[in-house]
């Protein structure tokens, strides 16, 4: 059972910790990447002060549930240690992979949507939830490239994950918007195809347009979180809010 959390939180990055401790803002919650804190006891100390005042959502970037070589349990143990200290209201990660044979590639890489990937992610989501002893939300990726070997669409894959594991979804509306642009699908149809009752959190972030080297004259939207949110992404967000209203009236966490 996920806790009730209403309102729009913001991502919290290391350079802002001291200011947030000194001048606590009126924010419903903060979202943090645990990997930023694992090697930084001072930052963790500041985070715990903030966690005493604000709900925290922990959003993992290095758990790599999509890696064929498996989830790294030593890393998972470190994440659990931090999670136990912070006691977050939400815990989430990505439908992606970042590791290969012990190497960490520092990116959220795309998966082919196949039965093999589905079986793997189902097993890994269970491993993560068992290890951390909390529900683990999974987020749709930002896509620039896919695989000809995929046998199902991304919403169908996410729906199957929910059905198999009972996990909830973190719907990154900006990712839907930019993936739809990059991969040529309809963003609204994508949102319509997601299991609305499984949506527990929304994300919205900035992206940038750059020339698409694969297609002359075309643009590629790249997930940078480095710019303000595009008006069209805001409109898609409004659509998502309406579409997922019944679930979000119970648990509404939108991280900007």
């Amino acid at each position: 059972m996920l806790p009730h959390l209403a309102g729009a939180g913001i991502g919290l990055r290391l350079p802002h910790l001291a200011d947030i401790v000194a001048h606590p803002p009126q924010v419903p919650f903060f979202e943090v990447h645990p990997e930023s804190f694992l090697a930084n006891p001072h930052a963790t100390e500041l985070l715990l002060t903030i966690a005493g005042r604000h709900p925290i959502s922990v959003h993992t970037v290095g758990v790599s549930i999509g890696s064929a070589s498996g989830v790294d349990h030593a890393h998972l143990a470190r994440v659990k240690q931090l999670v136990d200290l912070v006691n977050p209201v939400l815990l989430s990660g990505h439908v992606a992979w970042s590791t290969h044979a012990g190497e960490y590639l520092n990116d959220l890489l795309p998966l082919p949507y196949t039965d093999e990937s589905l079986k793997l992610l189902v097993a890994h989501i269970r491993q993560v939830q068992d290890a951390i002893e909390r529900p683990y939300l999974v987020e749709n990726p930002s896509s620039y490239v896919g695989y000809g070997t995929s046998t199902m669409t991304e919403p169908a894959f996410l729906t199957a994950l929910v059905a198999e594991t009972g996990c909830r979804l973190l719907c990154d509306v900006s990712n839907v918007y930019l993936s739809a642009h990059n991969m040529g699908f309809d963003a609204h149809a994508y949102l319509d195809a997601l299991p609305a009752a499984a949506i527990a959190e929304l994300h919205l972030g900035g992206f940038e347009a750059e020339p698409d080297d694969s297609t002359p004259g075309a643009t590629l939207l790249v997930d940078t979180h480095g710019t303000s949110i595009h008006p069209d992404a805001w409109r898609l967000y409004e659509y998502a809010i309406a579409r997922f209203a019944s679930a979000l009236s119970r648990i509404h966490a939108a991280t900007l």
């Binding site: 990116d107 620039y144 490239v145 695989y147 990059n182 694969s214």
Partner: peptide, 21 residues
């Protein structure tokens, strides 16, 4: 390259991830 899809030259799209790495 042969297994990728996206745009006219999908490997160029993978270069986004390569640049980020």
């Amino acid at each position: 390259s042969p297994i990728l899809v996206g745009g006219q030259a999908p490997a160029e799209r993978l270069a986004v991830h390569r640049r980020h790495y």
